[in-house]
Design a protein around this nucleic acid. Structure first.
Lengths: 326, 326
DNA sequence: ATGAAAGCGCTAACAA
DNA sequence: TTGTTAGCGCTTTCAT
């Protein structure tokens, strides 16, 4: 790899001038041309490590997510990637497995690599952001919140839970159950609250009897659905609060011969790779990609120096009665 | 962020000693203890940017893949992530969209960030690795090959295509079609070749009539399956050469009321989020995660100085007659 | 507009 | 074993 000095020597200018050319600072057309030619014959590219050491900041963003195999997060990552690239940043993808220890490690790495900023889906509401905040590096949390006062972009979870529940009652179902996520994740509890409010208004049964807490993964959805079907008074419909548990619930229903609309199913989140026979279910489409692009937008504004108080952006889900081919 | 000098001052030693402590080089127990205490009170973490500039190499690997939303690649990424982390490396995830231009950009960034090595799923067999090879940075290609002589880890694609085709004939199907991927991707053509050989041996029909080329995505699978069903002499079974096209094909079959085993379906690749009614299809399970871990293993050995000639590792697929709940 | 020179934080010769 | 020092490649004052 050629250095700025070699380019400078070949072009007959100083290293500072070469630097200026590559940073868009004023340089005479004549010298600028010389530098460009020299750079091109030497196949010069600025060394980002050196630049980042000198500037105390790199053109890299950390994206820290719980599960890279969950389509929800990959769609989000896709949004982050696209927008970041457009803004001139690369993205380091870090997988925490919902493990606070791994999360802490990655936050530490983000700091010691001088990364420009962090986009974080917190492993839990207990995630510790104190050191990254103390360092002054901008952080945006996505999809979940913590106790820390940072920018975040969220989905309107309670309305999502309420609207899909309402849709099921409107379709004639009478005992709408709910499979909710872990209690340490606000996203999960908010969606369940939306369901509960509607049940209390329209259900005429004790909502607690038809609420199951599961782990946000396919197996959690399977287990919870199986439990619901084993209840003394079974439900005739279910609201599932995330995509993966939705897959698990649909699998179990299919195994019992209960395909929608024989049994009502409402899922909050998209099911990108399903192969269901065309049956209708209620689905809340979540603007996952927008979650990512919005986060980058906010983060980049902070990197550029924005010092406003922490902002919250709420993105609405979109109710769709749909066949599962989405 | 504290520096090595501040730690040295507090501990009453030289910066070099601090560096030695953090790099496991011999230091007396006494000074070592002083340094550790000082480091801990200052919350010191070595600045990776500076280290990487000095060492001309960082503890970061580039993982360049065509589509972060494809479960095949995310499972692979998961393997890469896990193993890399265990070996002390972080992973930068780069999405190319099968675009050679984006791919070239990311390869360039990997170089100018002094990344320790690159794991690449080439966008096509025309991908240009010359500059990265010239730089001496190790590269491992995964799942696909290029014209360049580098380490690669592949799946045994032709046997995978052959075994799933054989399974369908053995199950009594007589006209087994194939939905293959783009001709610029060896993986796709190899799998199709496996299918063709078996058809020529056992089919008694012109294989070319039942071969469709598609784009490796869900919509490609849908389009190809629809074409096949519109043929004058329709097939009674199909081999689909990747997971996403498999999803598309199954969707179209379901829409036509042709669920397996009424129509034979063999898919090469796993279908992680399907919700099919329990029907039997033939599936070649691919060791996706192993693809990733193996690639890291090879790359790390190169980073450590291994100078053997380029190696090829072949991982076998595993035929499974399975319900789609995998 | 341009050049000289310092320094970002670290590691690795070299000396002691 | 330990300290001194140079320098990785770049950006950025400060002069000119």
């Amino acid at each position: 790899m050629a250095t700025i000095y070699q380019v400078a020597a070949l072009a007959g200018v100083s290293p500072a001038t070469v630097s200026r050319v590559f940073n868009g600072r004023p340089v005479s057309d004549e010298k600028s041309k010389l530098v460009r030619e020299a750079a091109s014959t030497l196949a010069f590219t600025p060394n980002r490590t050196a630049r980042s050491l000198r500037k105390q900041s790199s053109e890299v963003l950390a994206l820290i997510i719980p599960d890279i195999e969950n389509p929800f997060f990959t769609a989000m990552a896709r949004g982050v990637e696209d927008r970041a690239q457009a803004a001139g940043f690369s993205v380091v993808l870090c997988n925490t497995d919902d493990d606070p220890g791994k999360e802490a490690t990655y936050l530490q790495i983000a700091l010691s690599e001088n990364m420009a900023g962090v986009i974080l889906v917190p492993a839990s509401d207990q995630s510790d952001l104190s050191s990254i905040i103390a360092s002054g590096r901008p952080v945006v949390t996505v999809d979940r919140t913590t106790a820390f006062d940072v920018d975040h972009v969220m989905i309107e979870n309670e309305p999502a839970g309420a609207s899909v529940t309402t849709a099921l009652f409107d379709a004639g179902f009478e005992r709408v159950a709910c499979i909710a996520g872990p209690e340490t994740v606000v996203t999960a509890t908010d969606r369940a609250r939306g369901w509960r409010h509607v049940v209390e208004a329209r259900g005429g049964y004790d909502s607690e009897l038809l609420l199951k807490i599961a782990n946000y993964r396919v197996d959690g959805g399977r287990a919870a659905m199986a439990e619901l079907l084993a209840e003394a008074e079974t439900p005739d419909a279910v609201v599932v609060t995330n995509n993966l548990m939705g897959v698990g619930a649909l699998q179990v229903l299919n195994e019992h011969g209960l395909t929608p609309p024989a049994f009502g199913v409402g899922v909050i989140g998209d099911l990108p790779f399903t192969t269901l026979s065309p049956g209708l279910i209620s689905l809340v489409h979540l603007p996952t990609r927008d979650l990512g692009t919005t986060a980058v937008k906010m983060l980049v504004s902070r990197i550029a120096g924005n010092r406003e108080p922490a902002r919250t952006v709420l993105l609405p889900g979109e109710l769709a009665v749909a066949s599962v081919h989405t």
